[in-house]
């Protein structure tokens, strides 16, 4: 395509937008409303998952060793544990360290008096932090097969609760987002169809004169892309202010919440939301125009 023709096409696309002002507004509003809802749901779900993940990070399992196991063997087991895909990190706690931690809390500052020897001798252990608590059972089963390991302490309820909540969040958010996308596609294709039906005659004339499909389609495509882009940017702009406002309100007015829960920053939310929203908006505008114009090109 020559530059002159491209510029003409671009100009026609922009012109079409203003020429069909109400249709343009309706399309932008439809895309905008759908993407706004999508953005809101995503922000809530992403934060819920982030909170869950933060809490999950603190969940650990503890691995105790048989008394006859040497320090070298414990080191070797530690290396093996670290290599496991379920494991994010491990921390070794020696007998002395454990006594120094628990002694004061149970017996006060003079906890060593009356205990000439460490009463927690042999309680040295690895505290193992998981990448994903749903993988806990798998790791525990493996650990329990190790001859060096005496006992593995873990909470079955905590793990299954986290896994359950996590899965529920994934399913619920996937369902909501799928429904929203389906509704968006329906609304947008209807709006585009109405707009193009109005111009069916114009498309027919172009085809009779000898315009190629591309020449007819290009202004509609560009119009669709521009509508999609504006339809995506408007809700993103709104969500940006709304998100900051809500997070500020939660952390300043309800200080207790902010001390327990940590929220994602706007940048973290937008890292995914921005390209996804623009992609969906532009994609819908493009596809909506492409599919609908195709029907009228068979002249």
């Amino acid at each position: 395509m020559k530059i002159r023709t491209f510029l003409y096409t671009l100009w026609q696309g922009i012109r079409n937008m203003f020429k069909n002002g109400w249709y343009t507004l309706a399309s932008i509003a439809t895309i905008g409303a759908c993407l706004f809802l999508l953005g809101m749901i995503y922000s809530i779900v992403a934060n819920a998952q982030h909170i869950l993940y933060t809490v999950e990070e603190g969940v650990s399992i503890t691995v105790f060793f048989n008394p006859e196991v040497t320090d070298e063997a414990i080191d070797a087991v530690g290396q093996e544990i670290l290599k496991r895909p379920e494991v994010r990190d491990i921390v070794y706690h020696s007998d002395e360290e454990i006594w120094a931690t628990f002694g004061p809390s149970y017996f006060g500052e003079d906890y060593q008096e009356g205990f000439p020897e460490n009463p927690l001798e042999g309680e040295h252990n690895y505290e193992v932090f998981l990448r994903d608590v749903s993988l806990q059972d798998q790791l525990v089963s493996w650990l329990e097969t190790k001859p060096e390991v005496r006992f593995v302490r873990y909470s079955q309820i905590t793990a299954s609760t986290f896994s359950g909540v996590n899965m529920m969040l994934v399913y619920v958010s996937a369902a909501i987002i799928t429904i929203l996308l389906a509704v968006s596609i329906f609304l947008i294709s209807n709006t585009v169809r109405v707009g193009i039906t109005v111009r069916a005659e114009e498309i027919g004339i172009m085809k009779y004169i000898g315009a190629t499909d591309f020449f007819v389609r290009a202004p509609f495509m560009l119009e669709g892309i521009m509508i999609g882009l504006i339809g995506a940017l408007v809700p993103l702009y709104l969500i940006r202010y709304l998100y900051d406002y809500v997070i500020n309100m939660l952390t300043t007015r309800f200080e207790m919440i902010s001390s327990i829960l940590s929220f994602l920053t706007l940048e973290e939310v937008f890292r995914i939301l921005l390209p996804v929203s623009i992609g969906i908006g532009v994609g819908m505008g493009f596809l909506g125009s492409f599919i609908t114009v195709r029907k009228y090109l068979k002249v």
Binding site: E201, K207, G210
Partner: peptide
């Protein structure tokens, strides 16, 4: 399209 460029067309309703 290329074929139609050799044909001029005029309709009753002008189009």
């Amino acid at each position: 399209p290329k074929f139609r460029r050799n044909l001029g067309v005029v309709f009753q309703d002008f189009r």
